[in-house]
């Protein structure tokens, strides 16, 4: 096995993007390396269920199997203000142990989590629509269109 393959196998793929796994390696920590936020394995698992409730598995992959909970964490870690991070992390912390389907239902309806949910939902949708799976199989992205047509009749 060459070095590149070895490194690849050490990466976690989230929506088509390779993420570095956490180096801490201890059980109970998040599975990807994070710089600014801290999250436990239980909180990560809850987030996984949550993103799957937002975009569930059907005849096509849902958010969790596309690892979009890890994408949400990555974006929260790097692209949000400390205030946003606090908001989401504290919401996750309060629910880390309650990972039953009813707990997810309750979280989605709880008014105290509206802002945290908005961030999680926005990032989940972003990760989904920009995932390798969706961009290759569902809403195809053209890297090289090779054309511009200015008046195309819409098919009824």
């Amino acid at each position: 096995m060459n070095r590149r393959t070895a490194i690849k196998q050490l990466m976690i793929v989230a929506g088509g993007l390779a993420l570095l796994p956490s180096c801490r390696g201890s059980v109970g920590e998040a599975s990807i390396a994070l710089e600014n936020i801290q999250i436990s394995a239980a909180e990560e698992a809850f987030l996984g269920d949550l993103v799957d409730a937002i975009i569930p598995e059907t005849d096509s992959p849902g958010a969790k199997s596309l690892n979009l909970h890890l994408f949400v964490l990555k974006m929260l870690d790097d692209c949000h203000s400390p205030e946003d991070q606090q908001l989401v992390i504290s919401a996750l912390k309060k629910n880390a142990d309650a990972n039953s389907p009813t707990a997810i239902e309750a979280f989605l309806k709880e008014s105290a989590y509206v802002e945290a949910l908005a961030i999680i939902k926005r990032r989940t949708i972003q990760g989904y629509l920009n995932s390798e799976y969706v961009m290759k199989n569902k809403l195809k992205y053209e890297l090289i269109p090779g054309r511009y047509l200015g008046e195309v009749k819409v098919q009824a």
Partner: peptide, 17 residues
Amino acid sequence: TNLYPWEFEHRGEMPYA
């Protein structure tokens, strides 16, 4: 130049910091 949207670490967005 030849990267797909999902190949960008933050999908094109510049990190907060």
